Amino acid sequence: MNTYIDIGINLTNKQFHDDIDDVVQNALDADVAQMILTGTSVKNSEASARMAREYPGVLYATAGIHPHDAKSFDAQSIAKLRDLLKQKQVVSVGECGLDFDRDFSPRNVQETCYKAQLELAIEVQKPLFLHERAAFTRFLSITKEYLPQLPKAVVHCFTGSLQEAKTYLDNGLLLGFTGAISDTRRFEHLKEVLQYVPLESMMIETDAPFMLPKNVPNSLLKKYHERRCEPAYLPYVAGTVAQFKGISLDKVAEQTTKNARAFFAI
């Protein structure tokens, strides 16, 4: 039997408020054995940690401030994240990084917030869950300053170019892939990226309720939810990886699960 780990879900999102137990059970029924809730602000990270505590050994959480929320960063933020990271179910620093696509927070504030979280990851020696959109050059330049001391790091929901993927891998970062890889109209280039990236350097995620894979059958959408992505759909992300790489689904499941267990120490 294949086992999967979803390294990024947004289970505190309001779309899940009414049926969290069902969503977790749907995932378990689909052989998604463990899921990691993404923390996007101090408040959201606290909520994610509380929720993960209710499903021991199944749900885990990250603690961090997303670049969109960098404007909420204040003098108490790092201390609060540090406290969360002492909890055993909180396994990673993030989601943190830079987003120059939407600029929901000023760029200089994003950079200050990101650097503070890089320093926190070095201090607590927990891996990093990273976000980069339309900010590759600046993101890499900041990250490289800390690389010699940094613990492991994954650039989640990777949709960048092949050259960007190569640069991240050359710098020792892992890449996380979502259902975006099955969107051959918007992200056709990701087939070439996936063919290049070694299986040992990737993990898979749904980013639920976002990034609904295009290859989820309609019957399953009707059974669960018409438009909402769920962690139960992770095998369809794995299936696209297997298809693009010309390897078995079993191999993708086995290696990405092994990667996630080692990365997050779960």
Score class of each variant (00 low, 15 high):
Lys126Pro: 06
Phe104Lys: 15
Tyr146Trp: 05
Leu118Asn: 13
Phe139Gln: 09
Gln163Pro: 01
Thr167Ala: 12
His156Ala: 04
Asn171Gln: 06
Val154Phe: 06
Arg102Met: 01
Glu164Ile: 09
Pro148Ser: 11
Glu119Asp: 15
Thr167Ser: 03
Arg133Ser: 08
Ala165Gly: 07
Lys126Cys: 07
Leu147Phe: 08
Arg133Val: 06
Pro106Val: 10
Thr143Lys: 14
Leu98Thr: 04
Glu145Phe: 01
Gln149Ser: 14
Lys166Leu: 04
Glu132Leu: 06
Gln110Gly: 00
Val155Tyr: 05
Thr143Gln: 11
Ile122Gln: 05
Glu132Ser: 13
Leu169Tyr: 09
Ala121Ser: 12
Thr178Glu: 02
Gln149Pro: 02
Thr143Tyr: 15
Glu123Trp: 08
Pro106Trp: 08
Pro106Tyr: 11
Val154Cys: 00
Leu174Cys: 01
Arg133Gln: 10
Phe100Glu: 06
Cys96Thr: 15
Ala135Phe: 03
Leu120Ile: 13
Leu120Ala: 05
Ala135His: 04
Tyr114Cys: 04
Phe100Tyr: 15
Thr178His: 03
Cys96Tyr: 07
Arg107Gly: 04
Leu147Gln: 13
Phe104Val: 14
Gly97Gln: 10
Gln149Leu: 09
Asp101Thr: 10
Gly160Cys: 04
Glu119Ser: 12
Asn171Val: 00
Val109Thr: 15
Phe136Lys: 05
Asp101Ile: 07
Cys157Met: 06
Ala135Met: 08
Ala153Thr: 04
Leu128Asp: 11
Cys157Val: 00
Leu98Ile: 13
Gly94Gln: 05
Pro148Trp: 01
Glu123Asp: 14
Thr143Gly: 06
Val155Ile: 11
Glu164Val: 01
Gln125Ser: 15
Gly94Cys: 12
Glu123Ser: 13
Leu128Ile: 14
Gln149Ile: 01
Ile142Ser: 08
Ala116Pro: 08
Val124Pro: 13
Leu140Cys: 14
Ala121His: 09
